[in-house]
Design a protein around this nucleic acid. Structure first.
Lengths: 338, 338
DNA sequence: CTTGATTTCCGAAACGTTTCGGGTATAAAA
DNA sequence: TTTTATACCCGAAACGTTTCGGAAATCAAG
């Protein structure tokens, strides 16, 4: 591959001048710049990024750190979409992008700092670290900027992007109320999960703000599983004919409820409105297509990438960003006619 | 970050010796090696890969080139899974991995060779290039090794991994015949696609080898789309009550056929057996779950990655690899009872 | 006591850039 | 004519490695 020296020789100018010409400095004559440009093109020259990074002390590449990159993961889609977002954004910003896949065990061999130093990463966006992964603390304390997706953590070189979990859940419940539903059940997942508590809170708060009495026996536990959700919903629907709507903390559980209605001969949405959470691929294919609140991992990826290069470049930008979950209206919800 | 020079100063040995000690050369005394090691550890030294690559002329990183990385793509899953395979394999081989996302338009700005040279890539695995993408030819002629997934192309520094497209498609059709089906329709996609012709061939050949007459009016065109497939299937099923099975060149089109049966009040698989291709995520959730032939993108990714580093390292390995598609038996196919 | 081999170490060059600090003309001002 | 400014160019050092070709010291053999 052609190097600067080659271009220098072929054009008759010094390496310095060639470099400056190609980099757009203005202390080089128009003519010689043109000459150099054409020679460079002719030789198919393109700069060696490694060498450049070495001297400039910045590599123009940011890492995308993901733990346990596994094909089985249910969140594949989430991960993949944020990856797309990161990739797209970085390419418009003219940054490169390397994928760093790590496991908890790998984190013991090499520190986070070393990982960054080796490749001279300018910054990194982190997705899916567990709260007790050693890298998390290291990342926050590191001097190389990082932004976390969905892990709200403050730090001087640290930013994060997350979504309006609470608000969007509230919005979903409000939607049901707006359509006239008063007896709204809630299918929750494992109680210890962060998202579960948030969605539970949303449910209670919206009920209260609308003067609807909260009933303990209206919240079921579906454990984020289709089957468990179905088994929970079956007897409940039998015993509570007054219930006209179901808010589910995940689409998978919503599918369970849907199954239950089928077995009972109930029609969705005429007899029961169902609203889910996550916007999984399946939700638009099921019958009826599921109204749900969807996250926007692609957007999160974009924002994370954008934020990290802004931080890297020393611009004064907010170190937190939100992307709105959005209520996706499909056909599993209808007005309450009772 | 600590550099070799730092370690050199702190340990009292020359940079050369430190380098050789750390790299396991045997012309360094046990004691001094230990000393150096401990100092290095203490300073948290880790080698700057950029500098190393620069002098060694090899970067220990291979690129994963993908065109039009888009979240919408139906093949997301395919792409993502091969990505996982590549990533996993490379990390066990101790190679790094950068994702190169390009579009047809981008290919005009920067040649393939330049792209490789810039990052000093040792090799690249390529996925999803179109047959007329300029990069394809460049890649084959390039001196940097590459292996293509699903594009069987020969070349000295080139390899490919693909699947037994034809055989697996045949197997699917044979399966239907084995179950007693004689009137088997074929839903094909865009005729110009490579896979379409292969699956079409499979269909015809198996029919012939079983002495079943090939009928032109039994092959429909669903354009790889659900809706188009449904619209094609509807009138066809009406006009051909004798047809008991459908072989579809993609799962998406199989879904279309499934829809058509629903509208007609036909039961799957009692009234009509359906077999798809691709094993998309959805296929196992739909009702009834779709029997389909599944590719193994993860495996392809692994093999591709493995092959490319073997080629890079000058080992004498076969430049082609196959991974078997497998027929995944679910519930959309039944014995022919007529 | 030489000679030669072995062990252990190191200086310097190289990889391909960027950039600092000038240098040499030419043109304008004094 | 001399000075000053301007436009254009370049040499050399630096970034952090690896590696070639020795060199010094130690040891064994003759």
């Amino acid at each position: 591959m052609a190097t600067l020296k080659d271009v220098s020789k072929a054009s008759g100018f010094s390496v310095t001048t060639v470099s400056r010409a190609l980099n757009g400095y203005d202390d080089v004559n128009k003519e010689t710049r043109d000459k150099i440009m054409s020679v460079a093109k002719e030789l198919g020259y393109s700069p060696n990024i490694l060498a450049r990074s070495l001297v400039k002390k910045q590599s123009k590449t940011i890492g995308f750190l993901v733990t346990d990159l596994k094909r089985e993961s249910v969140k594949d889609n989430f991960l993949f979409e944020t990856l797309c977002g990161v990739s797209d954004e970085l390419s418009t910003l003219d940054y490169e992008f390397v994928l760093l896949s790590t496991t908890t065990s790998k984190q013991k061999n090499k520190t986070y700092g070393q990982m960054c130093a080796e490749r001279q990463l300018d910054g990194v966006v982190i997705q899916g670290l567990k709260r007790d992964d050693p890298y998390l603390l290291e990342a926050i304390e590191s001097t190389v900027p990082c932004v976390l997706v969905d892990i709200p953590v403050e730090g001087v070189n640290t930013g994060y992007v997350t979504s309006n979990q609470l608000e969007s859940a509230k919005q979903a419940v409000r939607y049901l109320i707006r359509l006239g539903h008063r007896h709204i059940a809630f299918m929750n997942g494992a109680a210890h999960a962060y998202v579960s508590t948030v969605r539970y809170d949303a449910y209670r708060q919206v009920l209260q703000e609308n003067g609807i009495e909260f009933r303990d026996d209206y919240v079921l536990n579906g454990d984020f599983e289709e089957l468990a959700s179905k088994s929970a919903a079956l007897p409940f629907l039998l015993n509570h004919p007054e219930v006209t709507a179901f808010f589910c903390a995940s689409d998978v559980m919503a599918l369970g409820v849907l199954q239950a209605t089928r077995e009972l001969g109930l029609n969705v949405p005429e007899d029961l409105s169902i609203i889910g959470f996550d916007n999984i691929l399946l939700s638009q294919y099921v019958s009826p297509p599921l109204t749900t609140v969807g996250q926007q991992p692609y957007e999160m990826g974009r924002k994370a990438a954008s934020m990290v290069v802004h931080i890297v470049e020393g611009q004064d930008v907010p170190h937190e960003a939100f992307v709105n979950n959005e209520l996706i209206l499909r056909e599993s919800v209808a007005k309450n006619r009772r």
